[in-house]
Each structure stands twice: as C-alpha cells, then as structure tokens.
Design a protein around this nucleic acid. Structure first.
Lengths: 109, 109
DNA sequence: TTGACAAGACACCAAAAGGTGTCCTATAAT
DNA sequence: ATTATAGGACACCTTTTGGTGTCTTGTCAA
C-alpha cells in the first residue's frame, strides 16, 4: 500500500455501512480522532482504522497527526462521481416514464 | 412485484463494476436476455447470472421468462436512495458553500 | 519519571465475493 | 425425431473483506 496508489473505487468505498456511518460522523464534526470515531461502533479500534484507510485511499478522507492523536476530516469531493453516475439514470424514475414503463409491462404479459 | 426477499443493499449492489456495466447495458436496451448480456463481458454466463441475481435482490432489475430465454429489464427506482444519500453531502463541494465554510472556520478561530 | 493513553503494525481467522466447470431440463430449430 | 441453444442448479476454488488480539512506539499527564 504505497502513497501514490491508484485511488480506490469510490463506489466500493461507500458500499460498507460502517464506512457510510464514518462519513456521516465526519460530516457532522469536521474533524475527529480515531478513538472518538471508534466509540460509535461495536467493533474495535483496528477495524475502524481499516475502514478509514479505505476511505483515505478513495480520497474521501484526509488525516493528520496531532500529538498522539490522528485526526480525520471528510473530503466529500469524490462523491461527485457517484452523483454524476446516478444522475444519468434519474430519468428512469421520473413519474411520467414510470407510468409508461408500467404500460409496456402490461403489454408484455 | 412479489419478492418477499429481504432486499439487498443498493449501495452494495452498485459497488461492483460488472454490475454497473450491466445497469448501463439495460438502460440502453430496455430488455435483454442473459446470453446477450454475457457477450459484453470476459466472464462466463454463470458469473453474469450471479451478478444479475444480486441486482434483482436489490430491486434494480426485473426478469421474466420468454421461451427458453430469461429477459432482464432495468428498474432504476432504487437508485433514488443513492441520489438522496449523496445529495446530503453535495453542500460540501459546492464552490459557494466551500467559501462560506472557510469563512465560518476562520470565525471559529 | 512513571504510568496511562492513542494508534500503527502485524499475524491471524471466518465468511463472503467473484469466479469456474459440469450436469440437467426446457425450448427452438432442422 | 434429433440436435443445438438458453439458462438454472450445484459443487468447488481462490481472493478479498471485515474482524480479532497482541506488541510496540510515541505522547500526554500526575
């Protein structure tokens, strides 16, 4: 795991519920040390740390050392990729098209 | 519409690149049989079928049998959950709000 | 200065994910 | 009637994932 890794897939990074919870916590608190993030989960420190590493590799989190703590901060920018991707499909659930789809389905049967 | 399955996590369903490619193909073609979807991948039929099962369990795909074929159709509606989720964080990358955040941060100190 | 705390680095483990090949049963085509 | 095709159902394999516990090194505090 070197620094200039090809960034991890953001879709993969947000697939895990624990990691989404971490994103939520960091969005609300701006900056938090590992031990404080860990409180919110049933899993141990090591597991939470691993999740944060994955978020870091996806560019979703920055970290810096302050004394004996490691502080984590959210960087939401990579989530734009998700938004762009899902926006391409938003036309498929617009009310009008859903009615149309239902008609097509009825015709098929 | 009669799935009594506990629905799979949509975030997990779209985490895999192959499954996203399947969604893309189905969005473009409305309805496709398994063997035709399989052409577009290097993996075998069984693997593609498994991916479609996961998409089905997430509610992202409907299927119906027609003759000896199984036709698959996209149902994009569950993607709304993704859109809603990511929308919550869009404020973090909007240019204006980033400036605002910086101001707030400066005021905090 | 001595103890308590934060967290990185490992080694390790069970389960899930993604893939394969084979067999079997419908359905279509010749 | 016979053959080819579509795909479900398995059994099986390897890698990844999410988790653990332990050891060690810094850093803060009494």
């Amino acid at each position: 795991m070197s620094e200039n890794n090809p960034l991890r897939d953001v879709f993969h990074a947000i697939a895990d519920p624990t990691r989404r919870a971490l994103i939520r916590l960091l969005a609300e608190a701006r900056e938090l040390p590992l031990h404080e993030l860990t409180i919110h989960f049933r899993t141990g420190r090591t597991a939470v740390s691993k999740h944060l590493t994955i978020l870091k590799e996806a560019g979703l989190v920055f970290d810096r050392k302050l004394g004996r703590e490691t502080l984590f901060r959210l960087n939401a920018a990579p989530l734009r990729e998700i938004q762009d991707w899902v926006a391409d499909y938003s036309k498929f659930w617009s009310a009008n098209l859903q009615r149309l789809n239902r008609l097509i389905e009825e015709e098929d049967q």
